[in-house]
Amino acid sequence: MPATPARTIKTATDGKIVIGVGDLAVSNEPSTHLITYALGSCIGVTIYDPVAKVGGMLHFMLPSSKTNEEKAKNQPAMFANTGVPLLFKGTYDLGAKKERLVVCAAGGAEVLADDGHFKVGSRNRTILRKLFWKNDILVIGEDTGGSISRTLKLCMADGTVSVSTKGKEQVLWPT
């Protein structure tokens, strides 16, 4: 597993930390929220420890770093298999405990009429499930698939996770 880059802890601007594509951030600042916009076939993952009030968000683009090993070294959050371990480690470094973590995911959409050859969104969803299953992690809230764009938000004060699509917001956690 690669070392946690210092850049996983970021400074909020106007109370929010924007997670770009192929990016991640962790925080223990209760006045902040983490947000990522326009999730398409990419997947946004949030984790939050309600006791330590530590959380993080990842926006990964592709399932496996085998696509571009060099790129994965410089930008591990671009890939599920390198980004997810970094996200978890980043929150552990701030005091989170695995057994208390609330995990949510959104995104993984598909273009229409993909003949089954590419399935970028579906492959992203599959590898995420495999990663979590191997590590005995349960996804509590999920809004994935379809062909829609989503915005994912994690409120650091209480761990509320919400997804917005076309102006409508739904809460993934608490359920």
């Binding site: 999730l39 398409g40 959409a109 993909d114 969104g121 062909s147 764009s149």
Partner: peptide, 15 residues
Amino acid sequence: WAGLAIGQDGLQYKL
């Protein structure tokens, strides 16, 4: 697929 320029139209286009 790269998440560039996704608006409210989402991925509602065909390949």
